[in-house]
Nucleic acid binder design. Structure first.
Lengths: 160, 160
DNA sequence: TAATTCAAGACTTGAGAAGTCCTGATTTGT
DNA sequence: ACAAATCAGGACTTCTCAAGTCTTGAATTA
């Protein structure tokens, strides 16, 4: 379904939030402010800390803060930190696939993957946070119309 | 994990295969030729037929064939046909998300989603099939190096 | 020393992808 | 007309993995 994991989504929300925060923020506070369940926030931040995207400080008055600036962190970096290397198929990135001798695609998914990767590398957390000061919701009129992918019918609906 | 479903992967393989086929090909034959399990092939082709990507012909000597040309079918169309509309998050494409009042991202994932969508719309099945006449495997030296997403560490590895 | 907060990992749960199977309809060839 | 081949449609089962929870321990502050 080419779906992003919720964890990566949450992480983006948390990081944008952290970027606007003064000083340190505790996991508990972030949970309240973002609506993400606290245990999940804690789990995510620990991971992000070990990946260097946030800095942690233990003890009373401790908490987390961004290690860099929102402008310097790409969406690709966040996704990779949470979910591991971005690979849309199992046989991307040099990994062998079981059907490689038959499938006839030998490595072409890499091309697609790299295209997506460079797209994600061009979008920063600062971009994600922009216009976020309550527009309620982007107006339907200004929504870009995608040529494909917005249609109703699908095998998923029809078959399973 | 931003992963494509296996079904969409299989469908791409099957369609590229069909595109090179003379006349009709049965589901059973395609299963043998591609290495994809036969029931899965049957399921996929039925769905692709009802979406108009392939044409079916019943009865003895029946089978499937592409309804168009490989050059005219985009990867986005295949994915959408198999998995439904491409939406990397639950709140893409106008759908409401439960935390919209808190998350502070209001609709920014749409920007990312549209970027990915246009990427996928620019790649056809003909592109996917190119260089596929047995290169064994793309040589490591020519592999594009992605700035992010190929690194080893991840929360997924470290935490779960 | 006590309270606070992060660190690390094991564990449970649930959704949904993936795959299988059955029954029926349609077409072809004998 | 009949039998064989093949797709159509759907129900069903299985299994993986994301998602979320909980526990114990270490570090820091006041």
């Amino acid at each position: 379904m080419l779906r992003l994991s919720k964890l990566a989504d949450y992480a983006t929300v948390l990081l944008v939030h952290l970027g606007r925060h003064e000083g340190l923020a505790t996991a508990a506070a972030l949970a309240v402010e973002t609506g993400v369940p606290e245990p999940t926030v804690a789990k995510l931040l620990k991971g992000l800390a070990s990946n260097g995207l946030v800095l942690s400080h233990r003890g009373a008055r401790g908490g987390y803060r961004l290690s860099g600036e929102l402008e310097k962190v790409t969406v690709a970096a966040v996704i990779a930190a949470v979910d591991g290397p971005i690979a849309i198929t199992a046989c991307c990135d040099g990994r062998e696939c079981e059907h490689s001798s038959l499938c006839g695609l030998s490595g072409q998914w890499d091309v697609v993957n790299d295209a997506i990767l460079s797209t994600l590398n061009s979008i920063t957390l600062a971009d994600m946070g922009r216009h976020a000061e309550r527009l309620t919701r982007r107006s339907p009129a200004s929504a870009p119309v995608a040529p494909v992918g917005t249609e109703k019918s699908s095998i998923a609906d029809a078959v399973s």
